[in-house]
């Protein structure tokens, strides 16, 4: 049994401890946002946050994540109450097939939690691990900039409040 903290809740996982987190999220916890894209750590579709840092869950075994705070896109907000990054992606209509988008949201969230006012170059570097085949990149860039603005404004309006979750 492995205890995993996902989106603020502890889960007892009964699986081979070598199982990459991705399959535990999808099969045991029935979460959909983290996607299988390559299983090789090359595309970013499966990204989640571990203690605020982006991690490719397809090659990260659950045993390594005990005691870490894992957040997935589900933990950032739902369709009815999207978080600031999710809202920015909706507002910019930043998706075509959308398959890659949760991974981008994670990269963006991690970036903006560390760097509230990123430069374009910083955004591009932060998003480099993620692939999008539909070519939604320009909208994704816009969405990240919009999210940065929104998160700064909300922090300014509500000092001490935490951006994101």
């Amino acid at each position: 049994m492995i205890t995993l903290s996902v989106n603020g809740r502890d889960h007892q996982i009964d699986a081979d401890p070598a199982t990459p987190l991705l399959y535990v999220l999808r099969d045991d916890l029935h979460l959909n946002a983290a996607k299988f894209g390559c299983g090789l750590g090359q595309c970013g579709s499966c990204m989640v946050l571990a203690d605020g840092l982006p991690v490719v869950s397809c090659v990260t075994p659950v045993v390594a994540l005990e005691g870490r705070r894992i957040r997935t896109v589900e933990g950032l907000g739902g369709a009815d109450d999207p978080g600031p990054v999710q809202r920015a992606f909706i507002d910019e209509q930043a998706a075509q097939c959308g398959y890659c988008i949760p991974g981008f949201i994670i990269s963006a969230q991690a970036l903006l939690e560390r760097t509230p006012s990123p430069s374009d170059a910083e955004i591009r570097t932060a998003l480099k691990p993620n692939l999008c085949r539909c070519g939604t990149h320009i909208r994704i860039l816009r969405a990240v900039r919009r999210a940065a603005d929104a998160m700064r404004t909300s922090v300014a309006a509500n000092p001490g409040g935490e951006g994101g979750q």
Binding site: A18, L40, V59, A64
Partner: peptide
């Protein structure tokens, strides 16, 4: 050991003789 488990979940995918690549 824990490291061996990590190896199976993180590294073996590419580096084991019967990994996908």
């Amino acid at each position: 050991g824990r490291a061996a488990t990590i190896y199976r979940g993180a590294c073996a995918t590419c580096h084991d003789a019967n990994g996908p690549l």
